[in-house]
Amino acid sequence: MGSSGGDFPALVAAGSSSSFFDYVSRSHPDLLPYGQNLPVGTMPATPHGTTIVALTFAGGVMMAGDRRATMGSMIANRRIEKVYPADRYSVLGIAGTAGLAIDIVRLFQVELEHYEKIEGTLLSLEGKANRLGAMIRANLPMALQGLAVVPLFAGIEPGDSAGRLFSYDVTGGRYEELEHHSVGSGAVFARGALKKLWRPELSADEALAVAVESLIDASDDDSATGGPDLVRQLWPVVYRVTNDGATRVTPEALAAVVETIVTRRTLERREA
């Protein structure tokens, strides 16, 4: 990225990069979640986050994640949150090694805010998606040790009428997805449900019902995905992104949606 800087030595010297990630990599590499040289040895079991689904609807995009983290066959956490707002107009969800993933989310949030403060303008949606890819690529050595992090990124370009989705692989490869996508251990089952339930021009409320139902289907078949917990009143974490920004769906709205689905399925008395 022109860091040889023959033309503008003063610019390079002033550390004028607008990227927090670049700055921290250079000046405080110990703060990054990765980059350590791991000694040989067996990694003990660490918490893993599981299923994230995302889908577009009329005027925006929605992302939902279940609340379970597993450690081998144990449930490590039943309240973990795996979907986060990245900035005002985008959200990201993460599956994989929870400890690293949560720090990558924090790093990405600061990266976007830092750019906005330094430059005085928002990064484009493509630009944000590319930065996230670079961060995931930097995690590749850890992924080779079994500590993979796989995000799902969704957002809207302010002023646009449709949301966009991006999926990633552990090498930082970035793929734009259409309509809907899912990642994590329950992703296969969630995607099957999404294929049947999603249709063009869903309203925001319909999209919410589809997202929750696909997570319920994932939890039905994947032991690492947590379903809605009616006893503890724990619902999936759902964010909705429209031109008005990213907002979290309230627990009350989620409780109502879950109740509708559960009641319907109870009445049907079928194998769902």
Binding site: A14, G15, S16, F20, Y23, V24, S27, H28, L31, R106, L107, V110, E113, H114, K117, I118
Partner: peptide, 17 residues
């Protein structure tokens, strides 16, 4: 402007760590 940017870097690094 360079002082402002340095301030943003200081604050973001501190808040992140």
């Amino acid at each position: 402007e360079s002082l402002r940017q340095a301030g943003v870097r200081y604050a973001d690094v501190r808040g992140y760590s």
